[in-house]
Design a protein around this nucleic acid. Sequence first.
DNA 1: TTTATTTAGGATAAGCGGCTCCCATAAGTC
DNA 2: GACTTATGGGAGCCGCTTATCCTAAATAAA
Lengths: 142, 142
Amino acid sequence: MIYTKTGEYAIRAILFLARQSKENLIMSSEIAKNEDIPAHYLAKILQRMAKYGYVDSFKGRGGGFKITELAKKSSILEIVERVEGPVINLKCVTGLKECSDENPCPLHDEWAELRNRIYNLISSKSVQEVAEKYSETLRKVK
Amino acid sequence: MIYTKTGEYAIRAILFLARQSKENLIMSSEIAKNEDIPAHYLAKILQRMAKYGYVDSFKGRGGGFKITELAKKSSILEIVERVEGPVINLKCVTGLKECSDENPCPLHDEWAELRNRIYNLISSKSVQEVAEKYSETLRKVK
DNA sequence: TTTATTTAGGATAAGCGGCTCCCATAAGTC
DNA sequence: GACTTATGGGAGCCGCTTATCCTAAATAAA
């Protein structure tokens, strides 16, 4: 995986929230159940996301989380990087010491291209776009 | 990184050995120094690679390691996978629960293509090919 | 208003695996 | 026998993951 479980959980949670009908509050435990994420760990991740403004949280009976406009506009990469720090390791696939743009190892250029495309894949689309596309797919299957 | 440090060290060591003139024994400590790898850890990795037949080891004064024909013919991926287990996590970038070929998430197809290309990049060329290409590059720079 | 309930917030600790180092041992060479 | 090098076990560290427990806040019910 390109990012760690923490990042994966964050994405799954935010995409889950993005698919909910507007203004609907979802409990942390409900997300955990639906997405198969350890409840306590998810609670922490949601906490962090609340701090960064990606979700709004409401306590008390009937409380829960909902996605913010900021998160909807953000890319998957942005959110993951805030939650777990830098994501894509920029070193070349061979890990060779001397490898750089001026002094490329045999796989350097090809790897650089792939790296950029991965980067693009997870940074060019907004969470909302991805979520909408995903909902469509789910609808078709049903 | 796609694989862990252990795998990276293994590759750097095997490519270092592949660049040596024939029948030349290299001590573990020498590889460690040249490639900036923790000496004791590298020793362990070399041990494992010796077991798998990727390097031959010789004890005593003048001893050390040399690459085997098997390793020369093997791909980077093969070696790394033996040393550290399965490498590329096949899950999709979003990590969505329901994502599969029949029921793809929005990024599934694009990610699958990239994943295949990465796979190809590190599995299609033999260690020897990569090492030779690398030696050329080094020669040009000097 | 008081109490109970429900929910998030936050600290802490345990588990695990990758990484690193140290030390004793075995197997060679001189 | 002395030395050199790989082998192998084991301890410790660190970061990611997970679970536990307590507190604070908000709401509902009385």
